[in-house]
Amino acid sequence: MKPPVSARPVKHSLTLRGHRTSVSLEDAFWQAFRDLAARQDMTINALATRIDAERGDVGLASAIRVHVLRDLQAMRQT
């Protein structure tokens, strides 16, 4: 049996272009983010760097959540 998924954000460190930063996401988003990176044959740091470069004035955690959500929605439509 899987442990319960926490609804509280969990902080993890990422490296973006050689700089460490912390991002807080809920467990479900961390798992979906890791799965998405694996499907794209990327590390989560590489995927976060790409999202960071495209995010504009939105916070990184929000940009990751939206990116993950859009990916899941696109998968559901196919």
Rank of each mutant, 00 (worst) to 15 (best):
R76F: 09
L14F: 15
A38E: 14
R76I: 08
A7D: 10
P4T: 07
S13I: 04
A63S: 15
H67T: 15
L47F: 07
A38R: 13
T15P: 01
L72R: 13
E54M: 09
A38V: 04
D52M: 00
P4V: 06
A46F: 02
A37Y: 01
R50C: 09
R17D: 14
Q73T: 13
M42K: 09
G56H: 01
L60K: 04
P3S: 13
G56F: 00
G18C: 02
A7Y: 06
F33K: 00
A46Q: 09
A61W: 00
N45H: 11
D27T: 03
Q73E: 14
K11T: 11
S24G: 15
Q31A: 11
T15G: 04
Q77T: 13
A7W: 07
A32V: 02
V5L: 12
Q73D: 12
A53D: 10
R34M: 06
S6Y: 05
P9A: 13
R65H: 00
R50M: 13
S13R: 11
F33T: 05
T15Y: 08
A32K: 02
V10C: 08
P9T: 11
V5H: 08
E54T: 11
V5K: 10
D57H: 06
L72Q: 14
V58M: 11
Q31L: 13
V68A: 10
L16W: 00
L14P: 12
M75W: 07
